[in-house]
Design a protein around this nucleic acid. Structure first.
Length: 813
DNA sequence: CGGGATTCACG
DNA sequence: ATCGTTA
DNA sequence: TAACGATAGTGAATCCCG
């Protein structure tokens, strides 16, 4: 059944702005004791406030020499933490902290040393931030209380629920919105408070600490300004609306650099230079601001104001929209203080990069809500309640991934019974279940020993979650919950032909695959990707698709997630009927022997599939687990199997500066194959994955000796565009790469003219394997070999297509 | 109308 | 996709 | 070992700027 609030689009959009003002006072929640189950405390993650304190205590003890001086003065926390391997000497002078953790990580130092240093940084940073933003009196009390509590804790640790509960009680009682948070209710949460939390989080790599900082901050927000909670959550996961609403900022690196440049009066070249050195635009913005003389102190930013500005950026379109967006960013930047610029820019980049993402945010939110509920009743949150809350919230969110619905529901009615109020609803996409990759059939047999399992073809197309609501509306969602109905009007309209009479509402998990009507065959993914994206009219659909259905998650008002796969599959077959070339059930086979699987795998490859999915068939473990990469679904991909995957030896022609943790090394490389006839190297792909951090350092060391100012005359590469490397190399180094597939490319030059007059060949999913010291650059894979690999692949895809002739046909759409 | 920037799909 | 860190 | 987050790829469509 639908949740109380309809998951409609317009309603949620508007509600953001209304939220801070129209806060409903939290409703007292009915007391409900959860039977304590012994399984839980033995279990995985009973993270309570209690335990987190333990961590902090331990650290304080170890680092007696922690510098506290900053904590007293109202210093901007940023001063210290901004400094990130910075060259600019002028801004260095006032700080004492030696290094940032980030710099160290990229250097891969001896681990023990790193840890010690990191700890002391954590402590100083946290203290100074706490005081700087004065989160609440509670924070101060916590700190004060810590030393006494310590002995209790470390002694009994293992099983003293009483002591634990006692400590938790103290903490929760101590936790009150202090005077300084009083105006949070009026103005909304200060953006500085959120950024201070980000700063703390960024300062550690410990997941429990990250979780703790997040949940404490959420508790503060719930207590002081619940109306900001939804926006705080959105800013923390760095989004502005549910995925399926399709609200995008439309801001990328280029515009951001322009905005920073304009806002700080520095040249674009300077900003780019800094970006290359720091690997982080946020830091660049903050530093650039620091170099400007500040005339007067701007009005502090608040979470609601930042959030509504982001929304505004997202909804701005049309002529000179880019200028308008830049204008908004400049205005925001001018109001930023301390570290706010850093996180504002990172938000706009779409990457907070503080090791905090959705899963952890959900856990923290659950903890905070449970703790706050108990707090309101003057009680103590029990560990079981917290663990259960985390569980409930995660499940609920998987089924109904909308903070717009869940957060108000949590605030009004708490986490108890949330699972009944917010359920899987046709019309709201749920997170698809994912499969674990395996490398061999034996691995599959090991996993499913003595269990019933089934095999299905793994189709090479696009995941499509098809919904039909009881009022007869249908939608198609992508793997990432984007609304694709406008891209697939043909799928929407064919539903009536495939749905049986008794089927009134459903959620169906499928793969949409490009379909050759003449040959009645599957076409490669590259064909599918040439389909128009927006406002497709059914009449002018050029690329036909066939839907392959493989799972049914909801039928006629009932969620089937907890049913076994065999039951779901039976219901699916009853509820739908196949129509050739339009709607088919994924081909499956229930055989359990290695021979049967091997045979089926070979068949799937012959039938233009990527390999197999192998799934638990019976019992509770065969339930559908949204968003989980579960061991109950495995995939066997053909290119992982011996002999089917392709390996090439390629020459490194150029490289791109790394970012984030790859600052100061090359982050990606341009590779080429060799054409002995033309005596030239031809670009074939970029590669940026498969390297260990050590590899990257070594490659940087070796390759920087071969840097040349411009490409050799005997390099055949695209003359411009984003593929142009930041640095070029002499042709010296040869690497072995793995790839899944080869594709015809408009940008790369490899084997150009050999299978297609204008297009070269590139690699799909290239990954670095190892150095080939034993090969000279002239011994690299040749263009002719590349062309041959492409032809071989094309002939399997086209079956009897007849070699090169058929190759071009595949792509003449 | 071409090219740059952005977003999205796949892995 | 792969890798590294944490638990 | 699993979970999670951070780093990367090609290619196409689409939007906006000049």
């Amino acid at each position: 059944m639908p949740p109380k609030k309809a998951p409609g689009k317009q309603a949620t959009l508007g509600s953001f702005f209304a939220m801070p003002a129209g806060v409903k006072p939290p409703v007292p929640v009915k007391e409900e004791k959860v039977a304590s189950s012994p399984a839980i405390e033995a279990g995985s993650s009973p993270v309570t406030e209690k335990k987190e304190e333990d961590v902090e205590v331990a650290e304080v003890k170890k680092d007696d020499d922690v510098k506290m001086s900053d904590a007293e003065s109202d210093v901007e926390p940023s001063k210290k933490t901004t400094k990130r391997k910075v060259v600019d000497s002028s801004s260095e002078s006032e700080t004492a902290t030696p290094k940032s953790p980030k710099t160290k990580r990229t250097k891969s130092p001896p681990k023990k040393q790193a840890k010690t240093t990191k700890r002391s940084i954590i402590e100083t940073t946290n203290d100074s931030i706490d005081s700087a933003i004065s989160v609440s009196k509670a924070a101060a009390k916590e700190d004060a209380a810590t030393p006494e509590a310590e002995s209790e804790v470390s002694d009994k640790e293992a099983d003293v629920p009483d002591a634990v509960a006692k400590k938790a009680a103290e903490e929760i009682k101590a936790f009150k919105p202090a005077e300084k948070t009083k105006d949070w209710e009026k103005e909304g949460v200060p953006y500085a408070a959120l950024c201070a939390t980000f700063e703390k989080i960024e300062s550690t790599t410990k997941r429990l600490e990250i979780l703790s900082y997040t949940s404490k901050f959420f508790r503060t927000v719930i207590a002081a300004s619940p109306g900001s909670l939804l926006q705080v959550v959105y800013l923390t996961i760095n989004r502005i609306a549910p995925d399926y609403e399709g609200v995008e900022l439309g801001i990328g690196e280029g515009l951001l650099i322009k905005a920073i440049s304009e806002a700080t009066g520095r040249s674009i070249a300077q900003v780019k230079q800094d970006y290359q050195e720091t690997g982080d635009l946020g830091t660049v913005a903050q530093r650039s601001k620091g170099m400007q003389p500040t005339m007067f102190k701007p009005k502090p930013l608040t979470v609601p104001s930042v959030f509504s500005n982001l929304k505004e950026i997202a909804t701005t379109s049309g002529q000179s929209s880019q200028a308008k967006k830049i204008g908004i960013i400049k205005k925001l930047l001018s109001s930023c203080q301390g570290n706010e610029a850093k996180y504002l820019i990172r938000s706009l980049e779409g990457k907070l990069r503080i090791r905090l993402a959705e899963k952890t945010v959900l856990t923290a939110l659950a903890q905070a809500v449970v703790a706050s509920e108990a707090d309101k009743k003057g009680k103590i949150a029990k560990t079981e309640d917290i663990v259960q809350g985390e569980d409930t919230l995660k499940t609920v969110f998987s089924n109904l991934p909308s903070y717009d619905i869940i957060v108000p529901e949590l605030l009004n009615n708490g986490v108890n019974g949330l699972g009944d109020r917010c359920t899987l609803t046709p019309g709201v996409p749920l997170k698809p279940m994912l499969a674990k990759p395996t490398k061999a059939i034996t691995e599959v047999l090991d996993r499913f020993e003595n269990q019933k399992f089934t095999c299905e073809y793994k189709y090479d197309g696009e995941r499509a979650q098809i919904h039909l609501t009881p009022d007869g509306k249908s939608k198609v969602y992508s793997r990432n919950s984007e609304d694709m109905s406008g891209r697939y009007p043909d799928i929407v309209s064919r539903l009536e032909r495939v749905v049986n009479d008794a089927t009134k509402s459903f959620v169906l998990d499928c793969e949409a695959v490009a379909w050759d009507i003449q040959e009645k065959k599957i076409l490669p993914f590259q064909v599918l990707s040439t389909r128009k994206r927006k406002d497709v009219q059914e009449a002018d659909v050029k690329i036909k698709v066939c839907v392959f259905a493989f799972d049914l998650l909801y039928l006629n008002g009932e969620s089937l997630l907890t049913k076994s796969l065999s039951e779901r599959r039976t219901k699916m077959h009853e509820a739908f009927q196949e129509v050739e070339g339009e709607f088919l059930f994924a081909k499956w086979m229930d055989g359990q022997s290695i021979e049967e699987i091997q045979f089926f795998l070979d068949e799937s490859v012959k039938d233009s599939c990527e390999g197999l999915m192998v799934k638990m068939l019976e019992g509770p473990e065969s339930g559908y687990e949204p968003s989980k990469r579960s061991r109950n679904w495995l995939k066997i991909k053909k290119d992982y199997l011996a002999g089917v995957g392709d390996s090439l030896d390629l020459v490194v022609l150029g490289a791109y500066h790394g970012r984030g943790k790859r600052t100061n090394v090359y982050g990606a490389f341009l590779l080429g194959c060799y054409n002995p006839e033309a005596e030239q190297w031809e670009s074939i792909c970029k590669v940026g994955t498969g390297f260990s951090e050590e590899d990257l350092e070594n490659h940087h060391k070796v390759l920087k000796e071969h840097v040349i100012v411009k490409p050799k005359g005997y390099y055949s590469v695209a003359d411009s565009g984003p593929n142009k490397p930041d640095v070029w190399f002499e042709p010296r180094v040869v690497w072995e790469l793995l790839t899944a597939d080869l594709s015809l490319s408009p940008t790369y030059k490899a084997a150009i003219g050999m299978v297609n007059a204008e297009k070269g060949i590139s690699l799909r999913f290239p990954r670095y394997l190892r150095v080939r010291d034993d090969k000279k650059p002239e011994e690299a894979t040749t263009s002719e070999q590349v062309a041959e690999m492409y032809r071989a692949q094309a002939s399997t895809q086209k079956a009897s297509g007849g070699g090169a002739g058929g190759v071009d046909d595949d792509f003449e759409y």
